[in-house]
Design a protein around this nucleic acid. Sequence first.
DNA 1: ATGCCTAACACCGTTAGA
Length: 264
Amino acid sequence: MRIATWNVNSINARLETVLGWFSEEQPEVACLQEIKCLDEKFPAEAFERLGYNVAVHGQKTYNGVALLSKTPLEDVRRGLPGEDFPGEEGDDQARYLEAVISGPRPVRVAAIYLPNGNPIGTDKFAYKLRWMERLNAHAQTLLALEEPLALAGDYNVIPEPRDVYDPAAWTGDALFQPKTRSAFRALEWLGLTDAYMAADGAPGGYTFWDYQAGAWPRNNGIRIDHLLLSPQAADHLAGVVIHRDVRGRDKPSDHVPVVAELNL
DNA sequence: ATGCCTAACACCGTTAGA
């Protein structure tokens, strides 16, 4: 089973590009982030024609996540626990969608769009860190189930200096703050495995290149899209492929797909 | 040099992304 994660930067602006990649690769499961539309504006029929079941947790203009699966999606959860979407007190940002991928060997998969958090020293950065704490708490609950689990998405976290073309250029950025990196390590210390590091780990495995300043031709990239696996999933990890060529196509997202293969 | 792209929404600019 191949599980893909891809921040598409607007599913409707990117539809032809995204459908082209899905037609070629046909991953069994995919997590999409930044769909930037309400549920009813998500082009579900186009994916259904490719054989996918679709679950969407969207909102107007910003954020939004979706899950695609060749087999039916069960036990769908929208939003992290602690959120009251769409509520006044709770979290009104659509950044988390979880479901069980049905089949002979079910896998629980979550699509994650972790807050960016810039600029540091503001409510946005505090919100990012709170969101990471809530994710940590929920991950503990899921790990206690002792089942195959993949938490996949745009984490907006550069884990280590090897994951950025120029660490010094990112020291003041929310994606590379000590507190951000520490919260990401805390997820790993719960027992979650960073699939890319376990399967490959080569430096320069970037997943994002800014649209600005010639970041792509200069290869000024960062690795911020991650698949974190429970032990029951990591035990079956066969490989991870970063589809970096997608960044050079017409009308690209600034992120590229990352695909983990599990022998499940 | 807190901008340099890109997208959404509504407007002919602002907000957000990372």
